[in-house]
Design a protein around this nucleic acid. Structure first.
Lengths: 263, 263
DNA sequence: AATGAGCGTTGCGTACAGCGCAACACCTCA
DNA sequence: TGAGGTGTTGCGCTGTACGCAACGCTCATT
């Protein structure tokens, strides 16, 4: 929409690939060197771009600062965190919290055996959107049209023999997840890792985030991990309640064996 | 330099404080709503800004992606990482890697007892620049004028009784560090944590990064930690050698008790 | 030393892109 | 039903970002 800004911002992904000098930037933008210089200078003033000693440009420190502040301001994260910690204390396994945003799934919190890691190491990398339990939960809640379009666009890498292989299988899985209100990943991403997850909903009942418990099956078998499902769901529901300003119907349709009573 | 881009980029820190609606953005930028809208749209197209369900804007996912890619493309990090892991295996303590950039010190890698964390949790937050061992190492190598100017500009928060209190003390410490070629932080940031660090240099002998080993004194006393100094320096020098395309004089002036022979 | 190629940088006139205005569409309250 | 609050659109004017060309600098090359 705004040409100048558009050009300037296009520089960022370009530099993300690696440092580049003025000429390269100008060429890849298709603009005159002086123009590129002006844009780079502006980016530099805002700290988004850094000029290293060999005069080449690379991404700057402010970027980290912004990303950091952004992730800290996600209120779902803030609300969820203590719940995740408590769940971790109860079961001992790794807990993940994730959100969906415009075609991507992002981990926004993680609690590990010992340390909470505020900014998840995989942020920014392509998340295993076709197999991760949290991804299934988040995508399952999209409007059907959007879900279908997205499913067609995705790649289906076979991380393991149990990875979901194609769009129809994925859509079928999403339908199941949508119906049952929870999701698993049993060795679909890494052979020996299983996950079980549950959705967190906003006031309007839409899924705003998803959480999961992961454990290698040398520690607990998939079946044993599944026994944690009620606990995981209860935690997710507790977060839902708190997030959507106390009690909204916590939407837990059916399908869980025997579990706590009032929703 | 470029007004439009300047305005657009000013939106980012503004949103970093928390979500804001169109009117707020326009007001704080001092521009018309339509202008703010155009800028926000452009930012949105590039994924730097996200529009949440209540129509307010917040920082977007691409920001994380960029920050992530940026940190991964730091070649010092890549070269250093295996060395850091090896050092960690030898001593068991937490290892940090940091760089200096325009008045800030950034952690760019960390190896913990069990997991490597690619993006350090503190990135973006004000690093304890006046007390951290890595900060001392990086600042000690700045040209004297720059060093002095920076030292005057800094705040000197008294994290503990042993924090460096003011500019003269800091400059004195930097001079010592510069001369001896290594640095410590003995309870200057957190009462019970000690660090010992060494510099990594580029082809031209300038310090390009710094690394440190940290441990709480319930695990090892400061004196015990200091016995690791030779090992830390050897690791730093190994990284220096590899980074600056094998052998440059590794600049280890004096001061280390008894240590390995050939540089 | 002198030459020249390859960089980044500067100043400037011009064209066009971004600006603010005003009108509009839509929502929630009263 | 209206009033006040949002976000959105189209448009004419002006200011700004554009590319050009000239300059300065650092390295190689002769």
């Amino acid at each position: 929409m705004s040409q100048t800004v558009d050009r300037a911002l296009s520089i960022l992904p370009l530099l993300a690939e690696g440092p580049a000098d003025l000429g390269q930037v100008a060429e890849r933008l298709g603009v005159h060197k002086s123009t590129a210089l002006r844009l780079l200078r502006t980016l530099h003033e805002h700290g988004l771009v850094y000029r290293q000693s060999d005069q080449r440009y690379r991404l700057g420190a402010r970027l980290f600062a912004l990303a950091q502040e952004a992730v800290e301001n996600l209120d779902i994260r803030e609300i969820a965190h203590p719940h995740l910690v408590r769940l971790n204390e109860q079961c001992g396994h790794t807990i993940h919290l994730a959100v969906y945003e415009e075609g991507e799934v992002l981990y926004i919190d993680k609690v590990e055996s010992r340390y909470p890691v505020r900014m998840y190491s995989r942020i920014g990398k392509p998340v295993a959107i076709t197999v991760a339990a949290v991804a299934k939960l988040l995508l399952a809640d999209l409007p059907e049209s959007e879900r279908r379009v997205l499913a067609e666009k995705l790649d289906y890498p076979m991380y393991t023999a149990r990875s979901i292989p194609n769009a129809p299988a994925f859509l079928k899985e999403l339908a199941t997840v949508r119906e049952q209100g929870w999701a698993t990943d049993l060795g679909g991403h890494e052979e020996s890792i299983n996950c079980v997850g549950a959705p967190i909903r906003g006031t309007d009942g839409r899924v705003v985030a998803a959480m999961s418990v992961s454990a290698p099956n040398v520690v607990v078998t998939a079946d044993e991990l599944l026994t944690l499902l009620p606990l995981v769901r209860r935690t997710a529901d507790a977060i839902t309640r708190e997030y959507s300003g106390s009690n909204v119907p916590v939407s837990t349709p059916a399908n869980t064996p025997a579990e706590e009573g009032s929703s």
